[in-house]
Design a protein around this nucleic acid. Structure first.
Length: 412
RNA sequence: GGGUCGGUAGCGAAGUUUGGUCAAACGCACCAGACUGUAAAUCUGGCGGCUCUGCCUUCGGAGGUUCGAAUCCUCCCCGGCCCA
């Protein structure tokens, strides 16, 4: 299969990219690959410490997919070995180190989720323990000799920690070297990563040069803002939208992003053609509500299909916009006996709506609890489940449970 | 190894000199209510547990002093910095 013309490829590859170091080199590489009919090797390292992918991760995965679609090779390197070190990038604390088994297991999960975006038939997956584990101590020392402490401390996160008198372990200095060594090992032409990976990616270039290789181009993708609109999307900041989340949650979360992010999300997370993006921008300014709904629809569709996207949309309209009760809500079967009075606080807790009775009490005091749309005001309320069930118990805007009572079970 | 500073609720950070009024200020995050086009922003309330006008378990760990300890003493564990 012939490669598309260089300009065409570059147009695709440039979309959404934050920084390309250096851009001319990429063009040259693309041109050479086309002439020699040799695909480029695009590398993406993944951190297996948190295997659940969210939309933030997909930004770079989608870029890798574009390389695949243009006929290039996508190499996914699972950092099962480096995971044992713990990537210090952007961290203010030392990461916990994982065992090899844990990283392997997570790597598998990562691969399964990543291939929802990547073409599984065209994705090469490698585990870096395969070669890094083989290095001897003297190899490691030799590797370490290629970088200086001063350069390491240039890195913002290290410098900040150093200046703040926070601990930095030696092994954390080894992480970027290990990742860079991966590039040498596979002879990467391009390495993808978030902007927070700048240092690591550039170090790959440096090591490759040292080995006489044609250095990789570093392609840095922006870090996607999370649902809070300011901080980068991350599970630990609780502002992430996971790609395995149910369609309704996904839809709702996309709808909750700030209006300013509509364009950015569209650019980085959807297949809306590049030349149609400006239209989206106008639409988002004119009618943010509908533009966002369209975005949410597109994103849900990409991961769950058109039907699920429709369903998620109507679910959203029904519950959030109209404030009603969704069609499908979790059911809780009470094991109370006939005529038995059950404290509402306990009932809510057993139905999984609250963590503790204290929490339930507070929520009732705040008017957040209702039974069949009737707000509960009495924290000491007792319910005779056998007589009142079934009924819908609601806590806050989004927590529902349909309480049912089964006589047969209760009698048994 | 020595010196020194520090370890407080999910995170950050007061409180320790002058023991009690500390379930522990404040900020962030989070939850709820109001508002709204979903949001954001804003405002209000909440934010250890319980049989809740009271009681119980918390301030690195273990002991101790005391009527009473996050606050005083002893030992231990962990971290920063300086010295070696």
């Amino acid at each position: 299969m012939p490669f598309p013309p260089v300009d065409e490829q570059m147009d695709v590859l440039r979309r959404g990219v934050d920084e390309l170091v250096p851009e001319e080199e990429l063009a040259e590489k693309v041109e050479r690959s086309r002439e020699t009919e040799t695909p480029l090797i695009a590398k993406l390292g993944c951190d297996p410490s948190r295997p659940d992918l969210h939309l933030g991760h997909t930004v770079v995965l989608r870029k890798l997919r574009q390389f695949q679609d243009l006929g290039h090779r996508a190499v996914l390197i699972v950092g099962d070995f480096t995971g044992m070190i713990g990537d210090p990038s952007g961290r203010s604390k030392t990461r916990p180190q994982l065992t090899l088994e844990e990283t392997r297991r997570n790597g598998q999960t990562y691969y399964e989720q990543a291939t929802r975006i990547l073409d599984p038939d065209k994705t090469e997956i490698l585990y870096n323990s395969e070669w890094l584990d083989e290095l001897s101590f003297s190899d490691v020392i030799e590797l370490a000799a290629q970088q200086t402490v001063a350069q390491m401390l240039e890195r913002e996160d290290f410098r900040e920690r150093y200046e703040a008198e926070q601990p930095i372990s030696i092994h954390e200095f080894l992480y970027p070297l290990a990742q860079a060594q991966d590039s040498v090992h596979i002879g990467a032409d391009v390495e993808l990563g978030g902007t927070d990976q700048r240092f690591n990616l550039l170090l790959g270039r440096q090591l490759q040069k040292g080995q006489g290789q044609d250095p990789q181009v570093c392609m840095m993708m922006p870090l996607l803002e999370g649902t809070d609109g300011t901080k980068k999307m991350s599970k630990s900041l609780d502002n992430a939208i996971g790609i395995t989340e149910p369609p309704e949650d996904m839809y709702g979360k996309v709808m909750s992003i700030a209006d300013d992010l509509i364009y950015r999300y569209t650019e980085l997370l959807t297949d809306v053609p590049t030349d149609a993006l400006s239209k989206v921008k106008g639409f988002a300014e004119e009618n943010p509500r509908d533009a966002k709904a369209q975005l949410a629809h597109r994103i849900v569709e990409a991961y769950h299909g058109a039907e699920a996207a429709e369903a998620a949309e109507s679910h959203f309209e029904q519950t959030v916009v109209e404030g009603g009760t969704p069609d499908e809500i979790p059911e809780y079967t009470s094991d109370a006996g006939p005529e038995e009075d059950v404290g509402l606080l306990n009932l809510m807790r057993r139905a999984g709506l609250t963590e503790s009775n204290s929490e339930g009490r507070r929520l009732i005091e705040q008017g957040a609890v209702s039974i069949d749309d009737e707000t509960v005001t009495d924290t000491g309320l007792y319910v005779t489940v056998s007589e009142q069930a079934p009924f819908v118990l609601q806590v806050g805007k989004r927590r529902f449970a349909r309480v049912v009572w089964e006589e047969a079970r209760a009698e048994a």
